[in-house]
């Protein structure tokens, strides 16, 4: 297997030596400094924080109840009463955007948390033990990776009802392969490092070596891929919503808000109904991308300050 990932392992050598020589904070400080230099990434992180807090505090901020209908005022344009207009059942768009943020972000975060967890465990086991275990696990990864994910999603979501839980589980159960490969790669190159070998000779158990010695050193790439993954999941939920298989109304998600706005008439005559959920998806996915990029650079030792 060797160590083909020379390029990416630099940071960890640096980090490992630091365990002996420097206080760990200094590394995070360096990374933070690097991250702060990336204006776009910083700006995106602020936007994301704003969106996340808006979602958390939706019940306080939102002017209405998300399912409260005002049938006589359906499709009202943005104005004083309804800041961002109303939808076809006269529900306040701003309110539904806020609650939709909750749903979309919950789907994004939990599915990615799930897939990162599975991916890390599988990748760590495969990478650490190698051999037959590695071969079997990686063939399994290959099988899942070869499935066009949308086909899988459609099949599974039509089979089970498209509820929040189904979507999250399906995203988590089939989204972990990338992480698994990544983590395995890191482990392969880390497991023959001196500090791991040292731990082994000291008789420390495998699982402790995996979790307290190797894993922290592989966190960088994992965090980056998680960040990028959340944006991907939000987009995937939107695509499923277009096919009628996303989060089901009345629960608002950005995806299904955009979907119910598909009709030509609404596109032309009620632009606010489609524009705002669309913008929210765009901004959020972009922000996750920029944050991910910023983190990648911050973790990358090749990129100098």
């Amino acid at each position: 297997m060797g160590q083909p990932e020379q390029k990416t392992t630099g940071i960890f050598e640096y980090k490992n030596s630091s365990i002996l020589e420097r206080k760990p904070e200094s590394i995070s400080k360096i990374m933070l400094r690097k991250y702060m230099k990336n204006k776009l990434a910083v700006f995106s992180a602020i936007i994301l924080l704003l969106i996340i807090s808006a979602a958390i505090f939706a019940p306080i901020i939102a002017p209405y109840d998300p399912s409260e209908q005002h049938l006589l005022e359906a499709l009202s344009p943005p104005g004083e009463k309804y800041l961002l207009g109303t939808d076809d059942l006269g529900r306040d768009t701003l309110t539904r955007l806020l609650y939709g943020a909750q749903v979309s972000l919950i789907v994004g975060f939990t599915s990615v948390a799930g897939s990162i967890f599975i991916g890390t465990v599988v990748g760590a086991i495969a990478g650490y033990f190698g051999g037959l275990i590695d071969a079997i696990l990686m063939r399994f990864v290959d099988v899942i990776i070869s499935f066009p994910s949308l086909f899988l999603l459609i099949t599974l979501v039509t089979i089970f009802e498209p509820s929040l839980m189904t979507l999250i589980s399906v995203f988590a159960l089939f989204g972990w392969t990338g992480t698994a490969r990544l983590v395995r790669g890191e482990f392969l190159s880390l497991r023959s490092r001196e500090f791991v070998l040292a731990a082994k000779t000291m008789g420390i158990r495998s699982w402790r070596i995996i979790f307290s010695h190797i894993l922290p050193n592989a966190m960088g790439p994992i965090v980056v891929s998680a960040t990028l993954g959340i944006g991907g999941v939000i987009l995937a939920e939107t695509a499923l919503s277009y096919l009628g298989l996303g989060i089901q109304p009345p629960k608002p998600s950005w995806g299904n808000m955009l979907q119910s706005a598909q009709s030509l008439k609404i596109m032309i005559e009620a632009w606010w109904f489609t524009l705002f959920p669309g913008l929210m998806i765009l901004i959020t996915v972009l922000s996750f991308n920029f944050v991910g990029d910023g983190l990648r650079d911050a973790f990358d030792p090749k990129i100098n300050e």
Partner: peptide, 10 residues
């Protein structure tokens, strides 16, 4: 039907 369900719910 899904929309009707929402209206009746309210």
């Amino acid at each position: 039907w899904a929309k009707i369900a929402e209206i009746v719910q309210q």
